[in-house]
């Protein structure tokens, strides 16, 4: 029994079940219905952020193209389902595979050298993608944007807002589980070793270029999955969504929440995206300041609390234990 309680996989599944209650609470009138959209959106962004956390947290590489790749996948899926009439499943696969291939090509060019080249190359790529979103009218609808609808699963189950929310939570939990497995296995150890010492990891047989590529491909893949979910949950896509600003938000999420931490990523997504939307909106000054606050938080966390806010829980617990022990004496 104790083993079951400690099983990390069950924790993820339990979290998923907990998150699935939200639409029910909204139906009962305990929550505003719009909260379902906000939370679903947060989870979608968390998926992309998890990919970036593999890249930055584990392998120490920065990508500024997260939003660009996410947008590419969103447009592709909208185009495949609406214009070409493909099934949701097929379009999901294509809209994830195509950006991932683009990502691997970019990685092949930039990852051979120092890590910082990836940041600059992805910045250039996101600029190219932004231009593509604006100019390729037939595919993206240009500035007026592109709409998509809630998906129909397996050709029979038509999802509504709540249904799509459940689907998003399910995907989030699966992605978290997969990430947990990979990062606690051979791949995670190799990426950790690489970040610690390139020379030592090479001596242990880690092919640097391959593993950097894998990390970047995973980051692109996660961003693409998030892009597809986004366009079928929010149901539209504009060029102005997929900017550098959003890519920076992803960085903020993982740095603030906690590098290398799966739960930290979710916490970070909540702080960066949901908190301004749910709470700060009501306070006029703060809603304008949320971007500034994120910037300040990034800097403060990096300098003073490098493992991220997720560690607060452990630190508070430790402090509490210490205090209660002190009283016991």
């Amino acid at each position: 029994m104790k083993k079951l309680i400690k099983n990390p996989h069950l924790h993820f599944i339990f979290l998923g079940l907990l998150l699935m209650i939200v639409p029910k609470l909204a139906e009962m009138g305990l929550f505003k219905v719009s909260y379902v959209t906000t939370l679903g959106g947060t989870f979608i962004l968390a998926i992309a952020a998890l990919g970036l956390n593999i890249l930055l947290g584990f392998s120490g590489l920065v990508s500024l193209g997260t939003a660009g790749f996410m947008g590419l996948a969103a447009y592709l899926s909208a185009y495949f389902t609406v214009d070409l009439g493909l099934s949701f499943e097929l379009s999901l696969i294509l809209a994830v595979v195509i950006p991932t291939i683009v990502g691997i090509l970019v990685g092949l060019v930039s990852l051979k050298i120092e890590g910082i080249y990836l940041a600059i190359a992805t910045l250039a790529v996101s600029e190219i993608l932004r231009k593509t979103f604006e100019e390729f009218d037939f595919f993206t609808g240009g500035f007026s944007g592109k709409t998509a609808s809630y998906p129909t699963l397996l050709g029979t189950y038509e999802l509504d807002r709540a249904g799509m929310y459940y689907f998003v939570v399910a995907v989030l939990i699966i992605v978290m589980l997969i990430t947990y497995n990979m990062m606690n296995g051979r791949l995670g150890r190799a990426l950790n070793a690489m970040r610690g010492s390139e020379a030592a990891s090479q001596a242990m047989g880690v092919n640097l270029l391959n593993h950097r590529l894998i990390a970047f491909a995973l980051a692109t893949m996660y961003a693409s999955i998030a892009g597809v979910l986004y366009v079928h949950f929010i149901k539209y896509s504009y060029p102005s969504i997929w900017t550098l600003k959003l890519s920076l938000d992803f960085l903020a999420m993982i740095v603030i929440g906690g590098l290398r931490s799966i739960y930290g990523t979710l916490l970070g997504a909540f702080i960066v995206f949901a908190v301004p939307d749910l709470f700060l909106k009501q306070i006029p000054f703060f809603s304008e300041m949320s971007y500034v606050l994120n910037g300040v938080l990034i800097i403060l966390v990096i300098i003073f609390y490098p493992n991220g806010l997720i560690n607060m829980f452990a630190d508070i617990k430790r402090l509490f234990n210490k205090l209660s022990k002190g009283e016991g004496k």
């Binding site: 150890r189 190799a190 950790n192 970040r195 010492s197």
Partner: peptide, 19 residues
């Protein structure tokens, strides 16, 4: 000594089996 501080001792050893 080039080890990874954040990982456990056994995980560090397992890196030796990477290939």
């Amino acid at each position: 000594v080039e080890l990874i501080r954040e990982l456990s001792v056994i995980d560090n050893v397992l890196i030796g089996a990477h290939v």
